[in-house]
Structures are given as C-alpha cells and as structure tokens.
Design a protein around this nucleic acid. Structure first.
Length: 557
RNA sequence: UGACCCAUGGUGUAAUGGUAGCACUACAGAUUUUGGUUCUGUCUGUUAAGGUUCGAAUCCUUAUGGGUCAACCA
C-alpha cells in the first residue's frame, strides 16, 4: 500500500508552450539552438540559456544545435569559438550539429536577391548619418530614402557589385522596403547587408558584404528548422521583423520566444564590460577566478553540477530580476560538501607546544569526508609542536568563545583534547607561543576521558607541514548593480577582491594534489588546486567559504 | 510625449477563476570531534484603485512603478 507520490514540478512558460505544441500535433519533436556570437567568453548568463535550450530537448523529443552567430567579422575570433565549445562541454551538454551563420552566406545572398526581385529590398547609397537622420524617432515617423524607388534591375546590379567588392565600406547598404512610418522602429526599412572589407575567421576573404543580425538569425533558424528560437527580452521588438522576413522569403517558419536574462548582483554580465576588465587588466584574463565567466567559475572551483543546479533554481520567466549571488554560493557549497576531501590547513600560524607529550610523533587517522561513508581515511602525523590558527586563541576571550584561551580546553580535530597552561610573548607583548598539556585518554576514536569540550580546532604538525600559496577572492564589485550607478562601472570595482597568502601550512597528505582537485579545508572553506601550481609550489583558489555562524556572532557584537 | 514587455515576502520562482506554495536568505532551537553538515520551527508577500463574479494573484479598466525601442552590434 505505498503511496506513489510523483513530485509534480510546475512548468515554466516555455515548457507550457512546447507541451501545447506537442499535444496539438504542431510538432512531433522540437529543435532548439544555442546561438552565441564568438566575440567573447561565455558567462553565467549564457549558462542559463544553455541549460534552458539543451534542457528542453532533454525533457522533450528533439535536439539542440550549437550555432555561431558570426556575421560581424571585426569582433569575432576562433579563440572564442574554441572556448565556447569547451565551456558547453564542461557544463555537460552535447549539441547535435555545429553550425555557423557564415555557413549560410550563399543562401542568405540568394534570399536577398529574392527580396529584391519581389520589390521588397533596395540598395541605399545614403551614409549611416543620413540613414539615422531619416529614421525618425519613436514618436515621429521617418522619411523615405531618395534611393527607395530604385528599379529592381538597378538594385540587382548594384547589390552584385557590392558583393564583388566594387564599393568601399559604408558607401552602400541593402535595406528591406517596409514602412518608414512604422510604429516599430525596427520595421523602418532595416539594413539587411553592409559592406565590410574584413577577413572572416570562417569564410576568409570570400565575402566583403555581411548580413546583419536580423537578416541572419531568423534565416539560420529557418534553415536548421529550429522550432523554438529562444532569446532574451531585448529581442521582443525584433520578432515582428523576424516573422516578416520569414513570411516574405517563404521559408520554414521558426518562431521566436523571449525570456528575461538573469542578472546577478555584485558582478556584471555583459561581454563588452567583461572584455574591458580583461583588456584593462583589472582581472587576470577571461578565466580569472573572480570573473563570472564559465571559465572563471571553473577555475574558481565551481562544479558543472552546481551551475546547472543554480540555473534550475532561478528558473525562467519574463520579468526583470536580480538574483542574489548567495544562491550560486549555496549551490556550490551543497555540491562540494558532498564530494570534497577534508584537509587541515593553517593560514595564520600560532605555535602550540604540548609540554607533556613525550613521544616523538604518532600517526593519527581522519575521515576524508564525513558525508561519504566510502570516503576512507587518511593519515596525519601528530607531534609535540603544532600550528593552530592565530584567531583560534585569545588571551582574554569574549563570552561564547569556544576556542583556546588560558585555562581552557579544546579538542584538536582527530587528535587529543588539550588545555592551555601558559602564554609566551615577545618583548612587544605579542603572543608567540602557547604551551599546553594534552589528555592522553582523549585520543580521537578511543576517548575514555569523559571530558566534553565545545570547540574543535584544525591544526598541523610543525615538523611535517608542507607549505602552499592560497588565493582568496571576494566579490568583484562593491555595489550590487555596478551598471546602475553614476559614472563608469569600473569605479565600483572592489579593490580587495584578491588576497594572496603566499605561505600557509598544510597537512602532508596534500603533497600529491593535482590541478582540479577539490578540498574542504576544515573550518575554512572549499578550495581547488589552481593550474598555476608546480611541484615546488602548490597554489589553491578559494571557491567559497563555509557558512560561518561565529563570524556572524562576532559581527553582532 | 508613442509603441511594446513586465509587476507575488529581502531574493528567485509557483498557484492557469476555488486553501497564496517551494527554494535561498534571516531568526530561533536540537544534533555535531568542522561555530560546517543534518533536523525542527518562526518571520515576511499578491503595486494601487475601481469593476466582473458566489468566489480574483489570476479576467476587464485606469493609475503607478520598472524595462525595451531611434548601432552599417548581436
């Protein structure tokens, strides 16, 4: 008599549309596409779009293409093509076909001729300034170009000569003939083709005219028979033109749907702004661990699972939003807690001498991950001279301080309970050493002391510790929305977003760590070994801290 | 002085004319050899005013607020 309770998750608005289309037989299967322009690295906003497009065809019959929207050769590069492919794969998705809008340049050229022949496109000799002046404003109609009435034959020959490279950049364009008084500015004879004598990363020097977004995107969707072309809200006004061109060209009717891009606080997600940060060296490159790029998050130690989970949790809708970066951090903590190996690392050492420890050293054992029963244990050397964290000792502790203080006892994780007997200081009054006694019967796993202590500290044996560099990161910007503030967004960069600790002390089991290994440094946070590591020098990036109830307590006062 | 899109706790997102729910955050407590994890509980919401209806977050009207549109960018 078991209750089969199927967790019924509600559908987002796109899933509803698709289920309707499938149910009423409009489609038997669907085709989506992820269409980046290869002019920058993918960021967390793109991850949302990737999870959406690929997620839809995992849930419903069909497939997703990767298509590079490469119609502007001046800003694009194969470096970006490669990074985009790597990032999508890393996120865990596989596209069905890899396409380029530039694959369709011949077809697009034919489409343009078809439009000209139908009297729906003309070659305009006006300059870009003249075109702008004739465009009108949102509240005033535009004016017809003097070239608007050109006969078809003349348009045909001029357009061919444009293609043949007879005219300089900017001298002529091909425009759709729609309506210069249209209420939608995009319908006021939009430019379809412009002249650019530029080398293209895919087509080389074959072309010197390139289609605009509006004459490439929807047509590419159509050629690939994309059923649901999903883009962000700023393209809503383009939909009318998207549909107009498909109708006049009489080609496969793809449909465009829009959702609100996801914004995250304390960062920027605009390729233009990210490019500035890279070019002006505010960060160390596209994969700087502070960057919201996929490659930055990867280097920071984020897992693909955690990013997918994040995208899933923030969902899809049509309203403006600002997602709290805390949710992203929650997602990565949740995953890392399950998979990362626990290790002890002391950042700011304070020496502890155990005065009654008579042995040379002994080997203790500690679990690799309390969340994972199969995780096994590791060996940790213990001796009379240890390092603990300087902040884990206070000579005059406040109330509710569970750590080490004169006369007080704490447990050393996986080792013994110790009691602070004496504080050693230098002439300046600085604490240089704490002398303790240990309780031999309190050994971890075989504790017969009957003593209960509130605090447990991480530690390393001075003689056995290895050193490493640790890089700590904070949010890139000081304000939630840098683009919404006065002046340049870069004025709001957080100058303390990177802190390097050149020498921390780690337990020796970490000696053989390899790049990409993820750890939880007990009581400190999650860390990943950086690609900058060498056999002589380990370098760790802090992915995210642990939740810290004590820090909050201290803050409250 | 236009058109279009949008409006649910601090944040994100459900409820598709019929009990305003979920997650994060915050707060409290329990457990804990990580002040972590886990568990339990609590606080907080339908932009406003009208209308339709037995019944409105949902439909209609108006107002208000936010966003988008005048690149040979995508």
């Amino acid at each position: 008599m078991e209750e089969v309770k199927k967790e019924e998750r509600s559908l987002n608005f796109l899933e509803e549309i698709i289920e309707e289309d499938l149910k009423n037989g409009k489609y038997k299967s669907i085709v989506t596409r992820f269409p980046p322009e290869p002019n920058g690295y993918l960021h967390i906003g793109h991850a949302s779009s990737i999870c959406l497009n690929f997620g839809l065809t995992q849930k419903y019959p069909g497939y997703t293409n990767l298509r590079f929207d490469d119609t502007n050769p001046e800003t694009e590069d194969t470096e970006y093509v490669d990074s985009i492919k790597e990032d999508i794969h890393w996120l865990g998705f596989e596209w069905k076909n890899e396409h380029y809008a530039s694959d369709y340049f011949d077809t697009l050229y034919e489409y343009a001729i078809k439009l000209i022949k139908k009297g729906l496109a003309y070659v305009d000799d006006s300059s870009s300034e003249e075109i702008a002046a004739m465009k009108g404003t949102p509240t005033e109609p535009g004016k017809n170009s003097p070239y608007r009435g050109r006969p078809v034959d003349e348009n045909l020959s001029l357009f061919e000569r444009m293609k043949n490279g007879e005219f300089p950049d900017g001298s002529r364009t091909l425009r759709a003939k729609i309506d210069m008084a249209h209420i939608n500015m995009l319908m006021r004879d939009p430019i379809l083709y412009r002249i650019k004598h530029a080398h293209h990363h895919q087509t080389g020097d074959k072309w010197c005219i390139y289609p605009m977004y509006d004459f490439a995107h929807g047509q590419s969707d159509s050629i690939e028979q994309v059923t649901h072309s999903i883009c962000t809200l700023e393209f809503v006004p383009h939909r009318e033109l998207y549909d107009w061109l498909i109708e006049k060209l009489e080609i496969y009717p793809s449909h465009q749907y829009e959702f609100a891009r996801r914004n995250i606080n304390y960062t920027v997600t605009s390729k233009r702004k990210l490019l500035q940060l890279v070019n002006e060296k505010h960060v160390d490159g596209w994969d700087d661990p502070r960057m919201p790029t996929i490659s930055g998050l990867r280097r920071r130690g984020y897992t693909p699972e955690s990013i997918r989970d994040f995208c899933d949790r923030i969902g899809v809708a049509k309203r403006e939003n600002m997602v709290d970066v805390g949710l992203l951090e929650f997602c990565v903590r949740e995953h890392l807690n399950k998979i990362s190996l626990r290790r002890m690392v002391v950042f700011d050492p304070l020496k502890v001498v155990i005065t009654n420890y008579t042995g040379q050293e002994e080997i203790l054992h500690s679990e690799n991950n309390p969340e994972d029963e199969q995780g096994g244990t590791r060996e940790i050397p213990f001796s009379a001279e240890l390092y603990i964290e300087r902040e884990d000792f206070m000579e005059i502790p406040p109330k509710k301080y569970f750590r080490l203080a004169p006369g007080q006892m704490v447990r050393l994780k996986s080792a013994y309970i110790i009691k602070c007997e004496e504080v050693v200081k230098d002439e300046a009054g600085h604490v240089t050493e704490v002398r303790c006694t240990y309780i031999p019967e309190s050994k971890s796993g075989s504790d017969t002391s009957g003593i209960n202590v509130k605090g447990t500290l991480h530690w390393v044996s001075v003689r056995h510790a290895i050193t490493a560099e640790v890089r700590l990161y904070d949010r890139l910007f000081k304000v939630e929305d840098p683009t919404d503030e006065e002046g340049d967004f870069k004025e709001y960069l957080n100058s303390d977003s990177l802190q390097v600790l050149p020498c921390v002390y780690a337990e020796p089991s970490m000696k053989n760590a390899v790049a990409g290994d993820r750890y939880q440094f007990i009581r400190k946070g999650y860390f990943v070994l950086d690609k900058d590591s060498t056999s002589a020098q380990l370098v760790f990036n802090k992915t995210v801290g642990l939740k810290d109830a004590w820090a909050k307590e201290v803050k409250k006062g």
